[in-house]
Amino acid sequence: MLDGAFVRARREKRLAFIPYVMVGDPDLETTEAVLLALSDAGADVIELGVPYSDPLADGPTIAAAGQRALRSATHLREVLALAWRCRERCAPIVLFTYYNPVYQFGVERFAREAAAAGIAGAIVPDVALDESVELRAALQAQGLAMPLLVAPSTPQQRAVRIADAATGFVYVVSRLGVTGAGYAPDFAPLHRQLASLREVTNKPLAVGFGVSRPQDVRNVGLLADAIVVGSALIDSYAGTRAQAAAARVRDFVAPLIAALPVS
């Protein structure tokens, strides 16, 4: 599922667009409307955020979105149900979930039910390479991808091992710190990181954290395969619901999508 999305983008000489949405922010109806709007607008893959009480890798925007989603009683089960409902009208879905909700759900059961819901993979930001063996095996057994993250602080040799172990794509974190549109990527080190990853892997490279504006998309440039946009997208429809949120999202993503082609 994921491979097809990246191949198509490459063929069309553009970056793939991966928006991130926090499920249940502020309610499931809104998330569903936003998902469909994103898919219609041309999202290639969608990251669905699973609400968690203690999101260590997230800045204020996504953390607050998660709190709103928890207030609407959205947990992993509700996220899987939403994915199932939308599966035929929606771009391929990758979950973005912290480990503890998965651990309580049961790792094997999680993999099984995610596959049954038509989900393509799971990113688990607090499970780095070293703790990833069990989860990766469980996901793989169900045909699900587990993209792993590479950070600016990741030493070169370790980045090679991460790229080797990642499935679906490699998630390249654009700068130190947590998610958030507050600061832009650190482009010079990012380009060096992308270039050196390119030498060792054919897997798609998706750049995220701090990508929020068309100029960020253009600056990421040719070396990557995809960009991930989260906090800025969430901000774009904060305070609105359902179709009004979907309209905001369409307006927000149009210039980003226009910036995807690389020449």
């Binding site: 260590l56 607090d126 780095a128 390479l129 590479v150 947590v178």
Partner: peptide, 11 residues
Amino acid sequence: GRYVPEVLIAA
């Protein structure tokens, strides 16, 4: 164990 984001592993 070590359940933290990749950005902290090197540190």
